[in-house]
């Protein structure tokens, strides 16, 4: 299977970071959509009402549109590198969320979380190293 061999290059890494950012934003819009329904406890009785309110919200459709965009970006990523490379590298979203919550929300990051971020960075370095003998595409 020679067609799925590829290095984790800076351009592929950038694409993966973009999908991470878009996914986080999409989740925020989905959350906004569910909040706008005013229903915080979905049961069998109000499920239909909840769904109709959700489908009428702009948050839901914006979130869905962003996920569709991501689908095309992710397809481009998968055409370049192995799944066992692309998927773990996507864990960069954990770092992004932590850094964004410091910069924009002024949140405090615990020592555990900093430790986790360092481990994720080391992990991504190892994963990218695992591709260095692959043929560049």
């Amino acid at each position: 299977m020679a067609n799925n061999k590829g290095k984790l290059t800076v351009s592929v890494l950038t694409l993966i970071i973009m999908t991470d950012i878009i996914e986080s934003v999409a989740e925020l819009f989905f959350k906004k959509g569910t909040l706008s329904t005013g229903i915080d406890n979905v049961t069998v009785d109000n499920a239909v009402l909840f769904m109709s309110k959700l489908l009428a919200s702009s948050g839901f459709w914006t979130g869905l549109g962003l996920h569709a965009t991501n689908f095309f970006l992710w397809a481009a990523v998968l055409s370049k590198v192995d799944l066992s490379v692309a998927f773990p590298t996507g864990s960069m979203s954990y770092i992004l969320v932590a850094l964004l919550s410091v910069v924009f929300l002024g949140e405090h990051i615990s020592a555990y979380r900093w430790g986790g971020i360092v481990l994720i960075i080391i992990g991504i370095w190892f994963v990218s190293r695992s591709t260095r003998h692959e043929e560049a595409r």
Partner: peptide, 12 residues
């Protein structure tokens, strides 16, 4: 690498 990432996610 994957093992480090899993450890990192659990800590985060």
């Amino acid at each position: 690498g994957t093992a480090f990432i899993i450890g990192g996610i659990v800590l985060v």
